[in-house]
Amino acid sequence: MTSELSPAAADYLLAFADDEHMIGARHTAWIGMGPFLEEDLAFCSIAQDELGHAVALYEFLTDDVDRFALLRKPQEYRSCAFAELECGDWVDALVRHWLYDRAEQLRWEALSGSANQSISEVAVRAEREESFHRAHAESFMSRISASNDTSSISKLSEAIVRLLPVAQGIWQPSDREEEAIREGFATASSASMAQSWNSMIQEDLLRWGLDIDVSSSTGALGSRTERSQGFERLLASLQEVINIDPATAW
């Protein structure tokens, strides 16, 4: 399957695949730590879905998903800082879940129109799962916003304002995105998706009655070739098991 993709298309997919891998890995950190048992299960099953998406994308890029996913050098990953970020507080994890999954929706929708039939099928399947992820994020965001608990609401708003600029980094395009679009593999530029994303996020905030102006939030896109702080520790923890015996077939 790997030979089907042009270098530009592979580059494009790698950025998305690594984002999915890192967000899935970061979400799984909440196993056993969620605010209540049912939410613990739900959030971790969302994490598993994201890891599943990463695997589905990696399969376009390599024949050995485990080694490719886990044993590259840090500078070979193409994830954005937002996906790599460690969220030590539940409300941060929730806000990221909402912001990231809104972006993921646009990215899958764009791929579902790809000229590449195989990736388009994966995208349609993944987007169906994402509709449940969004409903999950929406349930929490809307309920916290509508509650009488002003300290929770201000904590939520504070997290949104703090994370919005970092989230913009999702829209840092892969190096050869234009080429991937010309080939018909990708169907929307990161810049145009960023615009749609901004208005989606703003509509969500209005619906929840949160007075935050998305357009005033400016963040640098960041780089996909440089890893964020804390990445090496994350990667080391992801490698713990495979490093016990890298040659074993799992």
């Binding site: 048992l37 049912e38 939410e39 299960l41 739900a42 099953s45 969302i46 449940f132 349930s139």
Partner: peptide
């Protein structure tokens, strides 16, 4: 069984807890 704040969330959380 499961705990949830309301019907809609119960449906969502039940899906993830019992019908994976």
């Amino acid at each position: 069984a499961l705990d949830a704040p309301d019907d809609d969330m119960a449906r969502l959380l039940a899906r993830e807890s019992y019908v994976r």
